[in-house]
């Protein structure tokens, strides 16, 4: 059965992820489990970028803007509501609506390619400079202080409907893993729908898709907003994992990291960027504690090498090897059968 690039493949990966989730507490130390929650948030960000860039062909340099909006919206809403369940949905909606407005501006203006990248980057930098200036008691939304450079505290998750019953770190880990798997299966399903296929054809050839009668602007806007909503969801779990959100989520570095994860993992897949996030996060954090190599130096080398030598990313490259091996085997079998038939014919 062909698994790579199909929905059944997605389900198999999801099954493996569930097994990983159940085994994780017995493999990892408790501290690692706590860290994992923020990495899961980051990997959801990578997933959202893989969706919009890999499948829609929209290079969004400011994906972290939606990530940050999600994190801030969650923190502010959770403090004001006094519970996390509604706040999560508010965060997703806030990010998606912001993206819809921005996307209307961009896609209906026929802005494309590099210009689109610059606009999204600019928006993220505007948010960065604005949020840094919000220190002081006058900047607050409801009961939540925005806190300027230091950011604002993010309340932990709680049992739905009961604001005082906080989840333990282990339970938070299970919930965030469940959300990651759901988001992964959702995006995997989305790209197999008609909507997803039209988006892929826009990536391949915008003009031709438009000539076939699809309103490419609308499809791009839809994909952009959905991916922003997913990025916002990532922001929620990141800030829950860190317990605070600072303006740094909007910084150039955060956007750079997301792009590196997607490049390394493979931009045409969904699982690649998620795995790359986990691997690179733990690689850089262990480098950071060793102080032998500078983390920037290593990330820079990785990015350059991947763009030059492995432009498709790790997962598609490996999948390509298997594909080729299977094709070779298929050809070999066919040849053998042909030979046999010839043998019989000649007697």
């Amino acid at each position: 059965m062909r698994l790579y690039g199909t929905f059944s493949g997605t389900l198999v990966v999801a099954g493996l992820a569930i097994i990983f989730t159940l085994l994780a507490p017995s493999i990892f130390e408790f501290f690692t489990i706590i860290t994992l929650t923020q990495v899961i948030g980051l990997s959801i960000l990578a997933l959202s970028l893989a969706l919009v860039w890999g499948f829609g062909g929209i290079l969004c340099f400011g994906q972290s803007a939606f990530f940050g909006i999600g994190a801030y919206a969650y923190s502010v809403a959770a403090v004001n509501i006094g519970g996390s369940t509604g706040a999560i949905f508010i965060a997703i909606l806030a990010a998606a609506i912001f993206a819809a407005i921005l996307g209307y501006f961009v896609f209906y203006g026929k802005v494309s390619d590099v210009y689109l990248a610059v606009i999204t980057l600019t928006v993220s930098l505007i948010l960065y400079s604005l949020m840094r200036r919000t220190s002081g008691p006058e900047y607050k939304i409801g009961k939540a202080l925005l806190g300027g450079f230091n950011g604002t505290g993010s309340p932990p998750l709680n049992v739905p409907g009961n604001g005082s019953a906080m989840l333990f770190p282990m339970q938070t880990f299970y919930v965030s893993m469940a959300v990651l798997i759901t988001a992964y299966v959702f995006t995997g399903w989305l790209v197999t729908t008609k909507f997803g296929r039209v988006c892929v054809s826009i990536r391949e050839n915008d003009v031709r898709t438009e000539l076939l009668g699809y309103d490419t602007r609308l499809y791009k806007l839809g994909l952009f907003s959905i991916s922003a909503g997913i990025a916002g969801l990532g922001g929620v779990f990141f800030c829950v994992g860190v317990t605070r959100v600072t303006p740094d989520v909007f910084s150039l570095g955060q956007s750079a990291l997301a792009i590196i994860w997607v490049i390394v993992g493979g931009r045409m897949t969904l699982i690649g960027p998620i795995l790359a996030t986990f691997v690179l996060y733990f690689l850089t954090s262990s480098l950071g504690s060793q102080q032998v190599f500078n983390a920037n130096l290593v990330l820079g080398i990785i990015l350059v090498i991947f763009v030059l030598l492995v432009p498709n990313g790790v997962v598609p490259t490996i999948a390509g090897w298997f594909e080729r091996r299977r094709t070779k085997r298929y050809i070999r079998q066919k040849e053998r059968r042909m030979k046999l038939r010839k043998h019989r014919a000649t007697g």
């Binding site: 500078n294 983390a295 920037n296 130096l297 990330l299 820079g300 990785i302 763009v307």
Partner: peptide
């Protein structure tokens, strides 16, 4: 990537 490398 190059820019990160130089910073590093």
């Amino acid at each position: 990537g190059l820019s990160l490398l130089f910073i590093g």
